[in-house]
């Protein structure tokens, strides 16, 4: 347990409210290895984002803590870069300047000016955004903005890349493109990633492990699913793959049978051609 790269150790959090304190999370334990891709999945309001924010240091856990490479971390820092759902680019800086801001902050002492410049360009070309360096975020599409958001985080060379529903606000086609890009980059750089998602297909496609959370209040980890699909993964081939379908079923079962939450049905990738899962998504909505 102690040799894990990132350790979420008996984390719980309570929020102050007007009445009694609200316990959002309880007893979250999760060791993560270096280079692992972890997805957190669960119904809306179960506290997935809270977990991520605690790892990022944006929230303080009430009990327990986060240990990164043997050291406890409890405030935000560039070693745990966050990709926000709504890209969170500074609208008054160009694509280049947005990444540059992060690079300057992290490498001011270790890189020269030209090295920093090259590093910005390198990371933007990783996400295929080197053609729009001098555009403002308002002038590019949602998918492009999220690419820049990812480039900004990659450029910080974080120990852990935290992604808060990074593709949630995008249309299905753009989302697929970005998932492929992310897989490719992660395959190349071997980043340790913790990603929150609502999308079952996305979780199975990208992750090494899927962490499924129970419903709140006092949410915790329900089950952990090891996804042992060989990499590189191809979405077209996997669509028919029995293992993939099996993993998908496991997650859906957890979400719709064990943690039924009729108030907020999950978004399920309905473009899937798999009849069986179509059926399960329909029954989930009906429930």
């Amino acid at each position: 347990m102690n040799n894990s790269y990132l350790l979420i150790s008996s984390v719980g959090i309570e929020f102050e409210t007007d009445n009694e304190p609200f316990r959002a999370l309880q007893d979250i334990n999760l060791p993560i290895q270096k280079g692992e891709f972890i997805s957190l999945i669960g119904h809306s309001g179960c506290g997935k984002s809270t977990v991520l924010n605690i790892v990022a240091g944006l929230y303080q856990a009430t009990e327990g803590g986060i240990i990164l490479e043997g050291k406890e971390v409890n405030e935000p820092g560039p070693d745990r870069a966050v990709v926000f759902q709504n890209h969170a680019l500074l609208p008054w800086l160009t694509v280049y300047q947005n990444v540059e801001l992060a690079v300057k902050r992290v490498f001011k002492k270790t890189k020269t000016k030209t090295e920093m410049h090259d590093w910005v360009l390198h990371n933007l070309s990783l996400v295929h955004m080197d053609h729009a360096l001098h555009k403002l975020p308002g002038e590019i599409s949602g998918g492009m903005k999220q690419r820049v958001g990812i480039a900004r985080c990659l450029a910080m060379q974080p120990k852990v890349l935290l992604m808060d529903e990074p593709f949630g606000a995008l249309d299905a086609l753009t989302r697929a493109h970005l998932q492929d890009s992310l897989m490719e980059i992660q395959g190349r750089l071997g980043n340790t990633v913790v990603m929150i998602t609502h999308d079952v297909d996305e979780a199975v496609l990208l992750s090494d492990r899927i962490v499924m959370m129970t419903n709140g209040p006092a949410a915790t980890i329900g089950e952990i699913l090891d996804v042992k699909l060989p990499r590189p993964r191809d979405r077209l081939a996997l669509a028919e793959d029995p293992d993939f379908i099996h993993y998908r079923q496991q997650v859906l079962k957890f979400l719709y049978e064990k943690q039924k939450n009729p108030a907020s049905p999950l978004s399920i990738n309905s473009s899937s051609k798999n009849g069986e899962t179509e059926h399960s998504s329909v029954s989930a909505d009906a429930a």
Binding site: A56, L58, P76, P78, A81, F84, A88, A102, R105, V106
Partner: peptide, 20 residues
């Protein structure tokens, strides 16, 4: 979100004021 970006980047107060 922009404030969180600033926190993750650990921008110093003067830079935070100027850029964000």
């Amino acid at each position: 979100d922009l404030i969180n970006v600033s926190r993750v980047l650990q921008l110093s107060p003067p830079v935070h004021v100027r850029t964000i």
